[in-house]
Nucleic acid binder design. Structure first.
Length: 316
DNA sequence: AATACGGGGAA
DNA sequence: TTCCCAGTATT
């Protein structure tokens, strides 16, 4: 029985914050509070690993040092700099968000979660992350790391039913130390990235082990706690990645290829559809024209290319 | 609630 | 090969 819940919470918070102080990675976006730089980082980090973002983050800010520079740049240039990050729509949405901020918010990144949430490409996670990491607000939000850590810590084994985000946010709120939102959210994400990993979590060196429901569950379930907290089968994300279907040759892959082809064209060049088809696949014939037209139409709808009478090109 | 959306690295 | 990743928008 817990004698004093507040004492336990205080100890838990100290344990994680002290661990973070001694074990945090030196990530570039942790060295700044520039809201624009934070915004760039958070958009890039959506579904994209830290190691892959770091070089792109530096290159992007070197080319577009300010929000206004990004807002007034040719979209084609933004898309080119996005190469290698994937989810190219993020590049278009990021620039659109920058343009909206210039036009409607005096060029200052909004500090309100509710306002941030209205910007294209900014959802519940990113709005909270910007408010917290750029403006040091004590707000809670969920990414894949926080979701996993909070769930294991406050709920228990991965074998238990998945709690809703609403439930996890309530837990996150109770954990959050007042006045230390920036540090706390960085710390809990770092723990998820370095210790409380999806598979094979390093409980043996976890600073929160003694407070963790999942760890306790693992002990109870099995004297040898190894892996007992994790599900033997994947619990999430089974809908996508249909087995037997390779990524190469998929619709998503061809979308990426189309952007890659246009990216490497001389600036302003227009590529006829037939020529694009040839470059995508050597077996391209008239039978593929509808297929290509469909891809190109959707990319245009996403703002990733322009369709002209002569062919297609990147937006300027 | 389900899907689409990139692409690279790790298990 | 499959899973995973500092998610969002659309249906």
């Amino acid at each position: 029985m817990i004698i004093d819940r507040n004492l336990m919470l205080a100890a838990l918070r100290s344990a994680l914050l002290e661990w973070f102080a001694g074990n945090a990675r030196d990530l570039p976006w942790r060295r700044t509070r520039d809201p624009y730089a934070i915004m760039v980082a958070e958009i890039m980090l959506q579904q994209t690993q830290v190691d892959r973002v770091i070089p792109k983050y530096h290159a992007f800010l070197a080319t577009f040092p300010t929000l206004k520079a990004l807002a007034s740049a040719p979209t084609a240039e933004v898309i080119r700099l996005w190469a290698g990050l994937g989810y190219n729509r993020r590049a278009v949405n990021l620039q659109r968000a920058a343009q909206i901020i210039v036009e409607q918010y005096g060029g200052k990144v909004p500090d309100s979660v509710a306002v941030l949430r209205t910007l294209p490409g900014i959802g519940p996670y990113t709005a909270g992350a910007i408010a917290c990491f750029a403006f040091e607000q004590d707000v809670v939000f969920l990414d894949t790391n926080i979701r996993r850590v909070v769930r294991r810590l406050c709920v228990g084994s991965d074998l238990l039913p998945t709690p809703s985000d609403a439930v996890l946010l309530v837990h996150a709120e109770t954990l959050l130390p007042v006045g230390q939102g920036w540090m706390w959210n960085q710390a809990i994400m770092e723990l998820g990235a370095l210790i409380c990993t999806t598979s094979n979590p390093a409980c043996w060196r976890c600073p929160l082990r003694q407070y963790c429901r999942a760890y306790a569950d693992a002990i109870v379930a099995d004297g040898d706690l190894v892996n007992t907290m994790m599900s033997p089968v994947p619990l999430k994300r089974v809908a996508e990645s249909r087995s037997g279907e390779t990524f190469v040759g998929s619709r998503r892959w061809y979308r990426g290829r189309i952007i890659a082809v246009l990216r490497d064209l001389p600036v302003g060049d227009v590529l006829p559809l037939a020529e694009l088809g040839q470059r995508l696949r050597p077996d391209f014939t008239a039978d593929h024209e509808d297929w290509l037209q469909g891809l190109v139409t959707d990319l245009a709808r996403d703002g990733l290319l322009i369709i002209t009478d002569q062919g297609v090109r990147l937006p300027e």
